[in-house]
Amino acid sequence: MNTQENPTQDGYDVVVIGGGSAGLSAATALARSRRSVLVVDAGEPRNAPAAAAHNVIGHEGIAPTELLALGRKEAAGYGAEILSARAESARRSDTGFEIGLSGGTTVQARRLILATGLVDELPDLPGVRELWGKSVLHCPYCHGWEVRDRRVGVISSGPMSVHQTLLFRQLSDDVTFFTHSAPALESEARDQLEARDVRIVDGTVAELRADGEEVRAVVLEDGTEVEVDAVVVAPRFVARADLYEQLGGTVTDHPVGTLIETDPTGKTALPGVWAAGNSADLSAVVVVAAGAGVMTGAAVNADLIAEETAAAVEERAARGLTFAE
């Protein structure tokens, strides 16, 4: 897994919290710029329940664990350290940041990148969590092809559920929309679904009936069963932002959850703190998160260079040297 149990030094140019595609990509970009980098990874990737990652150019269908193992190897090959631990605290220090790790170890960082991802808050329905990432899905681009032409049921569980339904309708002619406990469909939304031949089933869903990891039916409270081969839900996406909040940051509300707001380079409102991947972009798939990691790594390197250059100019001036000398 290319991980270690202890950091090799007390201080780093950059500590990256999170060893997913965003964190590892940021670490690789920084290490290739000869920065000292520590990646702290708690080993809880969001896509762990999934059998494969899709739309990953050159690695289509790769197992998520294999992709991360390759990413660790690449980052470590350029000198980044990958530490298997949990970052439990963060505070400002004289040199930047002090990060408290599980086991009582602390490390110092001049800059901090939060690639902590998000938590999927799933609908509280029996069967959903057990089948999550297998036959209960949410993203048509991540898993839609795998359920093409099958019986897909969409349980209304968020503001984007009708949109989800129309996306999955592109993949199958047999799509059923369950209104569940959501407010009554607006006439425009109902017209859209009916125009696309989506079956609408009113009534509250009680549970999912399954056979192993395969969903077989959506069961309503009145006992009605509608047979399906896959179920789509809309989780609430909540950024893992504990460290950001400890440092004084405030998460930003979004119609489908919360996130750490950043500029296009990943810079947050807190000086010296960047965020990349799902912690800052709730819709980022694997390659988007990886791209954001590269962008953020480059931005942090540039920020450090600016600081170091300014210090060098100041030191030279203090020594009474002119730039002609």
Rank of each mutant, 00 (worst) to 15 (best):
D253W: 02
T258F: 04
D202C: 02
Q246K: 07
Y244A: 07
G203N: 10
A234I: 03
E225S: 11
I200C: 08
A230N: 03
D197P: 04
G223I: 02
D242S: 10
R209Y: 00
L208C: 05
H254I: 05
E194L: 11
D202T: 15
A195T: 12
D229G: 15
R236Y: 07
R190A: 13
I200L: 09
V201M: 08
R216G: 06
R216F: 00
T224P: 05
D253M: 11
G212V: 06
I200E: 12
G223F: 05
V215L: 00
A234Q: 15
V205M: 03
G248E: 10
E213D: 15
E227Y: 01
A230M: 09
L220V: 09
V251G: 01
E245P: 03
A210W: 00
D202Y: 08
R190Y: 05
I260E: 07
D202M: 09
P235S: 11
V198K: 07
E261P: 04
V228G: 07
T250I: 06
T252R: 12
V256K: 06
V231C: 11
V198H: 09
V219G: 01
D197T: 08
R236D: 12
E214C: 01
A239Y: 04
A210H: 06
E261G: 07
T258M: 04
R209H: 12
F237P: 08
V215H: 01
D229Y: 11
V238Q: 10
E213Y: 01
V198T: 12
L243C: 08
V232Y: 01
T204A: 14
V228K: 08
R236N: 14
Q192A: 12
E214N: 13
P255V: 02
G203S: 11
R209S: 08
G212D: 13
D202Q: 13
E194G: 00
V238R: 13
L247N: 05
V201H: 02
R190K: 14
E221D: 14
V233M: 10
R236S: 14
V219C: 04
R209P: 01
V233F: 06
G223N: 13
V215D: 01
D253E: 15
D242G: 01
L259A: 10
T258Q: 14
V256Y: 03
D197S: 14
V215P: 04
H254R: 12
D229F: 03
T252P: 10
V218D: 07
E227C: 00
V218S: 01
P255G: 03
F237L: 15
P255C: 02
A195M: 08
A217Q: 01
G212A: 10
V218P: 03
G249H: 08
A239S: 14
A241Y: 04
T258R: 13
E207H: 11
A241K: 05
R199Q: 15
A210R: 04
L247M: 06
G248P: 12
H254A: 09
T262P: 09
D211M: 04
V198F: 09
L247V: 11
L243N: 09
R190L: 12
I200T: 11
Q192N: 09
Q246F: 01
V251F: 00
R209E: 15
L247A: 06
R240W: 01
T224A: 14
